[in-house]
Amino acid sequence: MRIVVCMKQGIDPKTVKISRSREELDLREARPQTQPEDKHALEAALRIREARGGEVVAVVVGSRSAEDTAREAVAMGADKAVWIVYKGQRSGKTMTALVKAAVERLGGADLVLAGQGGDLDTAGPLAGRLAAALGWPLIADALRFDVEPAGLYAVAAFEGKATRLPVVLPAVAEVIPGAERPRYPHPSRIAVAWNDGYVETWNAAEMGLEEEALAADAEMGGLVLGAERQRGQVIGGSPEQAAEELAGILRGKRLL
């Protein structure tokens, strides 16, 4: 069984500032990161592989630093990754064409997983378009997969309820964050992920795609800024941890 996971490199939203005076995003300190949603998709794929064997291939589209996402996927446990070097705008149409071509070049797949679009994603939801392009069924909002002797089941959020349904392969699924936290990259995989042999570098031309097929079908129209909010602080962590931190902050401000 081959599972392809579409992974994208985005920007850590915490490192993006908004310049209100110039009405633009200030990306000077922006740091790239693997889209957290895609890590959930990879986690789901790794669990299926652990239960029934097979191969997990991460497909990453992007320029320069996107290679790091491909390597990270390997460090998390993907058997290999394909890095499609693409410098143009990654619209929904572009992504669909590239991933479809990649699946074909890999010699097909049984299951293609994609995470839901991230905060700063310009491509829009990929899974639906991909399913249509491949002519495969789509499982939307999948929370997790169960591998059973009778076959593969998806647990998906359907009208607010977790619903279990059998998966008819080949299929495309859109994974949303469920109960399973993506695993940490494993040190022994981190150690080898940058070695040769784990990441293949492809480009559109090699896959026989013309510029026409990749042309963006959506453009960045502009930036709409929401109402300005008072400065706040998000306190993370477990309840006790958050309480300790909050107590510390309040005591620091001498409100407590």
Partner: peptide
């Protein structure tokens, strides 16, 4: 730092914050 150690550092930070800090006290 080489790339793989940068990734390791990030992993460590997340691990320490999520799994260790809440138990330290």
């Amino acid at each position: 730092l080489p790339k793989h150690l940068q990734l390791f550092k990030e992993m460590l930070k997340e691990f320490a914050e999520t799994e260790v800090r809440p138990k330290a006290k």
